[in-house]
Computed example of a mutant assay.
Amino acid sequence: MSAWQERTIEQRNLLNPAFCAIAVWHLARGYRTEATALGSNEDGLPLALAFVGASLVLRGQTRDQLPRTITSSLATWVNDHPLERSAVAKGVVVLRETVREALLFGAQQGLLSLDGHRIEAGSTSAKKMNAYLRASSEDVRDCMRQATFVGRWLCKAGAPPTVLALLGVKT
């Protein structure tokens, strides 16, 4: 983890721990929503999928290429978007430290709950998140809407090893 003052202004503004923790909160919330709808007993967003989800959501070009419905399969999307597949796999590596820092920050602030290899959206009320989003730019709101969508989509995509393999992410 590089020292804060050594980070570029873009890293400090776009990839700061608070913003990324909020994105992971939305990923975990979306995952839980879909798991509940499917009648699954999943205990939260798998840790590996937090890194994949962040890579899908934090890069604007990839975010713009995401499907519009969760009924679109990940395998089909990967087949139709080979360059995005590569970008996501690379993004998982590039964002590794950023996501780790966000997970720690989120857990310290009560935003995220980490239990083994699963992440739960913490007890932070949806009211506080909605207030944050109302005061945010359209880009931030879009990023968080897409994070919720990606959480739901990844829940339907299969087991974490399957998702990682489809996206070409090496563990």
Rank of each mutant, 00 (worst) to 15 (best):
L95H: 01
T33Y: 08
R68F: 10
L164Q: 03
G116I: 02
T162V: 08
W153L: 02
L164E: 00
N130P: 05
A135G: 10
A135K: 09
R141S: 08
R29M: 07
V52M: 02
P82A: 04
T62I: 15
D43M: 15
R145S: 14
F51I: 13
S40K: 14
A18C: 07
A28S: 06
A21G: 01
L47F: 12
S125P: 07
C155H: 11
Q5L: 13
G158E: 10
L66T: 02
A131D: 14
R32K: 11
L104I: 15
T62N: 00
T8E: 05
A50I: 13
L166C: 10
G122T: 00
R7I: 06
G44H: 06
S137T: 09
T8K: 03
H117C: 11
F149K: 08
T76C: 08
P161E: 00
T8V: 08
S136Y: 06
A54T: 15
L14T: 01
S40C: 11
T171M: 12
V94F: 11
W77S: 00
R145A: 14
D142A: 13
E120K: 15
A102C: 01
S40N: 12
N130Y: 07
A50L: 02
E101C: 03
A126E: 13
G39D: 03
A18W: 15
R152S: 03
Q108G: 02
P82M: 04
L74G: 00
R134N: 11
K156R: 15
E120Y: 08
R68A: 10
P17F: 07
L49S: 00
T36E: 09
A121C: 11
E10A: 14
T8S: 15
Q11D: 14
L104S: 07
V78D: 01
S137N: 13
E10G: 08
R7F: 05
R68N: 08
G122I: 03
V57Y: 01
M1L: 13
L56K: 01
H26G: 07
L47V: 05
N16R: 09
